[in-house]
């Protein structure tokens, strides 16, 4: 499923025109981005929470030359699935293979 699929499903489910549905999806994701940018966290009970943490600096290596590359501290996004989502997914069976 991609963004367009989500927009379409939302439009049909809520009886919204496509552009309004797209605005809703953009606004929801925009809210999350904004909160993370400001160093905050987003808690959506049942679904999960988004937050950021510092990933520590380390020395990496260029895959071809082996030359060391310093990787500085950086801020990364963390998503922790909520209890309901984690539980619903945990027991599903693998379809492909």
């Amino acid at each position: 499923m991609n963004r367009d699929d989500l927009v379409h499903i939302l439009a049909v489910a809520r009886g919204l025109p496509k552009p309004a549905s797209r605005d809703v999806v953009d606004a929801v994701l925009g809210c999350v981005e904004e909160a993370l940018l400001e160093g905050g966290r987003v808690e959506l009970r049942g679904f999960g929470s988004f937050s950021t943490r510092i990933a520590g600096a380390y020395t990496g290596h260029h895959p071809q030359t082996g030359e060391p590359i310093p990787i500085p501290d950086r801020r990364v996004v963390v998503f922790k699935p909520g209890r309901a989502l984690a539980a619903a997914v945990a027991d599903t069976v693998e379809v492909e293979l």
């Binding site: 499923m1 499903i9 489910a13 999806v25 989502l85 619903a88 599903t92």
Partner: peptide, 23 residues
């Protein structure tokens, strides 16, 4: 309702084993 629908739609897709790619 809209927010719930967005979250539920993502939830269902994952339960069905389908990835959700949001550009």
């Amino acid at each position: 309702d809209c927010l719930e629908t967005v979250l539920t739609t993502i939830h269902r897709s994952l339960v069905a084993g389908d990835d959700v790619r949001l550009t």
